[in-house]
């Protein structure tokens, strides 16, 4: 997923090979990660797809099943991965991930600590940000969850950038060998204040910490603990509002019914992401957008703090 050298970049010349991870796109809200293995098939409601048909195709191609159903084969990215990974825990989504990666000033070469690993949704984005020569040390309390994460990182090919440790960070803190090594630390723990003193020791001078918590009481307690050794303590919340588009016919002139300039929308959904309803081709049409009615109303609070320079 993350190129290890210039040849790994997405290119018009690259074709799907045996062993590649592809994202099979049915619809915006229906995708799946598949490892391409000659002889294997993918079966879904659109039919049976032979992997062997995929090999040699370009990424981004439309491929067909035996009964002419189709899907698209996309090159994986951390964003697509977030949409297809198995949820072993609540995961972080793109708005929080993007914001915290930028706020933590993570650039290539950085060393980043994360706890807990969870479903590894954030880890993949952290790996992308530190690549090609940085490293992510991620820790989870659960042995099995850590093992699943390792498998996933193997699958997505970020394993060279990530080390998964099994450790109770709240109880034991980060391992001593990482003291003073970290450019940034990310905590997603039920009681982050227990891990903050250790996180402070891991950070380089002027390094930044981020703690993600769903409840305000967790934030309040974390901030109290942060006051001791950190500065620039700031708490944010970020949400993403999505918009749907609709095409409407503009019937200019007065109809029988008064001044109906716009025909009522016809709800004919095509793809669900690309929410939009189509109108027949006759007549001049205009496109309008409005916010989708439902959204995630809250994910968590992001508290940032910078290690004080003493």
């Amino acid at each position: 997923m993350i190129p290890a050298d210039p040849s790994g970049r997405l290119s018009l010349l690259r074709r799907i090979q045996e062993g590649d991870l592809v994202i099979v796109y049915e619809r915006h809200d229906h995708m799946k990660a598949v490892k391409v293995i000659n002889g294997s098939v993918l079966q879904n409601r659109f039919g049976v797809f032979k992997h062997s048909d995929w090999i040699g195709k370009k990424f981004g191609s439309k491929v067909f099943s035996h009964k002419k159903g189709f899907v698209y084969l996309l090159a994986p990215t951390p964003e697509l991965w977030t949409l297809v990974l198995s949820h072993r825990t609540q995961i972080l989504y793109i708005a929080d991930i993007s914001f915290l990666v930028m706020y933590l000033e993570i650039v290539p070469g950085c060393v980043v600590l994360e706890s807990g690993t969870g479903s590894g949704s954030l880890t993949t984005s952290l790996a992308r940000a530190v690549a090609p020569m940085g490293h992510v040390h991620t820790f989870d309390f659960h042995e099995q969850r850590a093992a699943s994460a390792r498998e996933d990182f193997e699958k997505t090919g970020v394993n060279k950038l990530v080390t998964v440790g099994v450790r109770d960070i709240q109880g034991e803190g980060f391992p001593d060998e990482l003291i003073g090594q970290a450019d940034a630390v990310f905590l997603d723990l039920p009681q982050p204040w227990l891990a903050i003193p250790s996180a402070g020791k891991m950070l380089k001078a002027d390094g930044i910490l981020c703690s993600f918590s769903p409840c305000i009481e967790q934030v309040q307690r974390s901030c109290e603990t942060l006051e001791l050794k950190f500065t620039d303590i700031r708490t944010f919340e970020i949400l993403l509002r999505t918009y749907e588009i609709k095409e409407v016919r503009a019937e200019v002139g007065e109809g029988d019914d008064g001044f109906s300039l716009r025909s009522p929308p016809r709800k004919k959904r095509q793809h669900s992401t690309e929410k939009g309803s189509a109108v027949e081709a006759s007549g001049a049409t205009t496109v309008m957008a409005k916010p989708c009615s439902e959204t995630r109303g809250h994910t968590g609070y992001l508290t940032f703090a910078r290690l004080k320079c003493l």
Partner: peptide, 13 residues
């Protein structure tokens, strides 16, 4: 494909 219009909403506490 995968088209989406989104708007971030940021709030500080």
């Amino acid at each position: 494909i995968g088209l989406q219009i989104s708007e971030p909403w940021l709030r500080e506490y």
